[in-house]
Design a binder for these strands. Structure first.
Length: 635
RNA sequence: GCCGCUAUAGCUCAGGGGUAGAGCGCAUCAUUGGUAAUGAUGAGGCCGGUGGUUCAAUUCCACCUAGCGGCACCA
């Protein structure tokens, strides 16, 4: 007897082992047709796998959220099957489902071309049409290793060899293709449907290690049906329009050029945004008890040797030689901040001491890492270092996170991921110091009740860190804010304060940044707002223009009043029609266009058209100016 | 850094072994038009850089540089 309990509480009894498919058929033929897999006691199973004990069971159809991953995983297998059919000399490796799609890594001497991709996709469609059964098989590990090795699939054999010898493994067979897989899978290739598409080929290291050979990764996207596939492709297209690199060019915010790869040239409009943000942060920091300093760009290598940066990051530091001394352009500000701290005789009464700097840093980033404003070689951090006692870590962490959340909220960010990164393999400091640092930081965030994910081994070399991650328009994550706990650098650079006992003690140092780098943050911000900035950030806040040239004097007069009130205003006195000017300034994402015709000029009024609205509103000039001034205030 | 792709006018892009083309933008002229493109005329290019093949290279090949998509890296 096998008793199956369905999600609605319904119980079905069977004489012997039963499959999910049979249960679905008993409920209705429509369901059986739509079924992709089942969940047996909370675990996903193949539809055709025998259930031998009493179980809770629910059926996954392609409408379910869970179906997506199954579908994508199947798509990866079909991709591999297609590749093996077309290019039998290729070795298969791994192919998981990922966000929005799937990929499969192949080993093959010749590169796959875009043409190949089309052929492969066509073959995948054939395989779907063939509707091959996907069959689960249980093998012993050693048999499987031998099987794949005999087939010349060295990578597969290696993966399986890493599984404990006594453990049985599952293989899935579809047509002539057989692959190691935990499963579950759809019952047949036909269930994949037509909602998939191959998107790109890229290199990827075997086992994610750059010491290993490079494989070829084919990416694809997969959805329950063609309509959803199209919707996804549309979303991508829309997202591309808000790419900060594109908007940066279109709106004349900044540029890059070959002679200074990875180092932005800020144009007036981009620089305006930059400065507004800096002023805003400056005010915030004063409010939160920071003191602002400025330290040198170029510092003797001795200091970097002492701090440990030379040892670990020498390859990524720009250097310069003068008078037979080697200097490095600072890649971080912390050592300089400690030097400032060390110039003072600090009492425990002075702690916590918070030193902030808009620190201009240079790092020689690997060429392949550069990415618009998001990953650059010269950037400015809203950096600060908090020197405190260990018992102040929790309150300082709270204080910082409160400030960070306020700032992010002012910029309209709600989706913030927090990651906790602990000790990396390459690190400075003893393990008991790391134990303490990790415990301190963790207890501080636990106390705040924040959700975070663990990021094992990703901490800085001197301490564990919290990362505050924002997402760009096509879903790529970027670390912006950070909080890093450091017991190591104060030691290395011999920072001390005088405690109640009159003796020298070692302060703890917190490295922290809210925006991270201005460059990256502005990149994210451009995409976040699609360059339709709120008034306080907009490079040009108001354009004043006339209907005809008769109003030129009035237009100049209005603009002068706005300018005097601190509004960033431009006039448009060109001999163009109003339609043309509205269109152009709308494209330029100017938040407010002030239009004056004869009526406005004679009545001292102005007609306002706001970005994103087709409406116009005529106001008294002085009222209009006052309300713009109010709205243009930074939060 | 690694794999692949790309580099033509300010921008977006077409072209192709015999030194180039479109649209938008720009300039000039006409037009003074009430809220998303007025018309005409014109200017604008060492076809990313360096070598090679060739009678001839922007086009084919190699290398370099930069960008794009990933991977690796990210103090």
């Amino acid at each position: 007897m096998v008793q199956i309990t369905l999600p609605d509480g319904n119980i079905r009894d069977y004489d012997g082992p039963v499959t999910g498919l049979q249960v679905a058929q008993d409920i209705g033929p429509g369901l059986a047709k739509a079924a992709l897999a089942v969940v047996v006691n909370g675990e996903q199973w193949d539809l055709t796998r025998d259930i031998t004990t009493d179980a809770d069971l629910s059926i996954i159809t392609r409408k379910d959220e869970d179906a997506l991953e199954l579908l994508r995983h199947d798509a990866a297998h079909v991709l591999a099957e297609a590749v093996k059919e077309l290019y039998p000399e290729t070795q298969v490796t791994i192919g998981p489902a990922i966000e929005n799609g799937f990929y499969y890594d192949f080993a093959r001497p010749e590169p796959f071309t875009p043409d190949d991709l089309e052929k492969i996709e066509a073959r995948m469609k054939e395989i779907v049409a063939r509707d091959e059964d996907i069959v689960r098989e249980v093998w012993s590990r050693d048999d499987a290793v031998k099987f794949f090795r005999d087939m010349g699939e060295e990578y597969k054999a290696e993966i399986i060899s890493d599984i404990p010898a006594e453990q049985d493994i599952t293989l899935y067979r579809q047509g002539d293709f057989i692959d190691l897989c935990r499963g579950p899978h759809l019952p047949s290739t036909g269930k994949l449907g037509d909602g998939f598409k191959l998107t790109k080929v890229a290199g990827a290291y075997w086992r994610g290690d750059s010491n290993n050979e490079m494989l070829q990764r084919i990416y694809g996207t997969a959805w329950p049906d063609k309509k959803q596939l199209k919707a996804y492709l549309n979303r991508l297209e829309e997202a591309e329009k808000r790419d900060h690199r594109r908007l940066g060019r279109e709106l004349d915010l900044f540029h890059f050029q070959e002679e200074a790869a990875g180092m932005p040239f800020w144009h007036p409009h981009g620089w305006t945004i930059y400065q507004e943000i800096q002023t805003y942060i400056q005010r915030k920091q004063r409010e939160y008890g920071y003191k602002e300093i400025k330290t040198p760009q170029l510092v003797d290598r001795k200091l970097w040797e002492q701090s440990g940066h030379w040892d670990k990051f020498r390859e990524h530091m720009y250097t310069s030689e003068s008078d037979e001394r080697v200097f490095a352009l600072k890649p971080m500000n912390c050592p300089c901040h400690i030097e400032v701290f060390n110039r003072w005789q600090v009492s425990y009464r002075d702690l916590p001491l918070r030193l902030a700097e808009f620190g201009s840093c240079h790092r020689y980033e690997p060429s392949g890492a550069l990415h618009g404003l998001m990953r650059v070689r010269s950037f400015v951090q809203d950096d600060a270092h908090i020197f405190c006692r260990e018992d102040q870590i929790t309150s300082e962490t709270e204080n910082f996170i409160k400030m960070l959340l306020e700032v992010y909220e002012d910029f309209g960010f709600e989706d913030i991921k927090i990651k906790f990164s602990d000790r990396p393999e390459m690190r400075a400091g003893d393990d008991d110091v790391w134990d303490r640092a990790e415990a301190d930081l963790k207890s501080a965030i636990d106390k705040l009740g924040l959700d975070y994910t663990l990021n094992p081994g990703e901490g800085a070399f001197y301490g564990p860190k919290l990362e505050f991650v924002l997402t760009d328009t096509i879903g790529r994550d970027w670390q912006c804010g950070t909080l890093q706990l450091d017991f190591v650098l104060p030691e290395r650079l011999d920072a001390t304060y005088i405690a109640e006992d009159g003796q020298k003690h070692r302060p703890v140092m917190l490295h922290r940044a809210v925006l991270g780098s201005f460059e990256r943050f502005i990149g994210i911000l451009i995409e976040h707002y699609a360059a339709r900035f709120p008034l306080w950030l907009a490079p040009v806040q108001v354009v004043v223009t006339g209907i005809t040239s008769d109003q030129d004097d009035y237009v100049r007069d209005v603009a002068a009043k706005l300018r005097k009130a601190g509004i960033r205003v431009e006039t448009d006195l060109r001999n163009e029609k109003i339609n043309y000017k509205i269109r152009e300034h709308s494209h330029a994402k100017i938040p407010a266009i002030f239009v004056a015709g004869n009526r406005e000029a004679s009545e001292q009024t102005i007609t306002i058209r706001r970005l994103g609205s087709k409406n116009q509103e005529t106001l008294d000039l002085s009222d209009a100016i006052h309300s713009i001034i109010e709205e243009a205030k930074a939060p």
